[in-house]
Nucleic acid binder design. Sequence first.
DNA 1: GAAACTTCTTAAGGTATCTTAAGAAAGTAA
DNA 2: TTACTTTCTTAAGATACCTTAAGAAGTTTC
Lengths: 189, 189
Amino acid sequence: MKLQLANYLNRYVAFETEEIDLIFDALSTETFQKKEFLLEQYQVCKHRYFIIEGLIRSFRTDSNGNENISLFGIENWWITNLDSFINETPSQNAIQAVEKTTVLSISKNDLEVLYTKVPKLERAFRIITEKTLIAIQRKDEIYMKQHSKERYYNLVDTIPNFAQRVPQYMIASYLDITPEYLSEIRKNR
Amino acid sequence: MKLQLANYLNRYVAFETEEIDLIFDALSTETFQKKEFLLEQYQVCKHRYFIIEGLIRSFRTDSNGNENISLFGIENWWITNLDSFINETPSQNAIQAVEKTTVLSISKNDLEVLYTKVPKLERAFRIITEKTLIAIQRKDEIYMKQHSKERYYNLVDTIPNFAQRVPQYMIASYLDITPEYLSEIRKNR
DNA sequence: GAAACTTCTTAAGGTATCTTAAGAAAGTAA
DNA sequence: TTACTTTCTTAAGATACCTTAAGAAGTTTC
C-alpha cells in the first residue's frame, strides 16, 4: 500500500523516501464492506480518503427519495466532500462503498500538520486539486453538449468494465436520467 | 491595484510586504474593452487572469453556432481555462470581456518561477483552487436539483444587480436554456 | 433623428425525458 | 428448491424545454 501511494504521489512531485514515510504514517487504513457508508448525508465530512482498492460513490437523496450520484471514485483517487471537509459544514452528499473498498484516510488537522512537515505535499495537492477541477469541468462540458444517449456510451466506453462493476440504476443516477429511460436508450443499440 | 491584490491574497495566507512585491512585479496589467477577447476558442490559454475590475465570461460556440457560457468572472476572481493552461492544449472555450475589464495576468512559466520564489503562494493557490472546486460543485448541485425557473431566481438573487450588468441571453446561456424560455419564465414572475 | 443593429418577447408545434405502474429477470437467503 | 429482495424493462400519458419565425423594444451609429 505504501508503494502504491508512493507511485501515485511521485506522479506529481518527486518525494524522498523519508517524506513518503511521514505521509504514510499519518494515514490510517480502513476497509468498508459493500454498501457501508464512509460518510452519511448531513454529517460533517472529517476525512479525505485515498482509495487503495474498490469503488465508491458520492450521492444525495432528495426530498422525493431519489438518489443523485455526483461522483464515482476508483483506485488511486482521493475522495471527500470538499465543501464539508474544508468548511466543516454538514455534507449534502453521502459517501458509500459500491464494492468492498480499502482506503487510506486522514483528518483535516492531521493533513494541515502534514503540509507543514512535508511542504512538497502542498504542491502535490495543489496539482491534484487542479486536475480534479479540470475533470469536473470536462464532465460538465460533456453534460452540457451531449444528449443522454451519447453521455451513456461515452461513460461506458471510457472506463473499462465500468458497466459490469456498477448497477445500471446508479449509472442512470450519475447521468441524471431515470433508470427507465436508460433502459430505453440501451434497447435502441 | 497592489493593495487590492494584497487584500485578496491575505484572505488565504498571511504574506510579507516583500512577498506581495515579488508577486505583484511578476504580474502584468492589461485592460480589455467590452467584447474584446482575452482568449479565442481553440487557442492555447497562456495566462491566468486576476480581475481587478469588470466582468468577463467564458463560453464555447457549438457546431450550431449556439453560445454556451460556462462561467462568469467578476472582481477578485482568477480566470483562465485551466485545462488548456495546465495541459497546453487548445481551449474549447473563449474568454471575453462583457464590460470593460482590467486584469493582472501571469504566464504558466512565470507562475512556476513565482511558486519557487514565494512558496506560500503554492498554499494560497491550493486553497483558491479548492474554493473554486467547491463553487463548481455547488453550481452543479443547484443545476441538478432545480428547474430552470428556480436556477434563474437563485442566480439573480445571489449576485446583486447581476441581471443589470449582463444581457439576458447570456444569463439564458449560462443557465443552459434558450432566451425564449427565459423570457417565458420571467413573464410568470 | 432616422437607419441599422442588437436584444427581448410572443406564439405554435415538436421532442427528450419524466412519472407511474406493473411485470420480468436476476441475485440472495433460508 | 422456494421464497424474498433487488434490479431491469415495457408502456402510456404528462411536462419541461426547444425550434422556428416574426415582430417589438432598446441601443448605437452616422
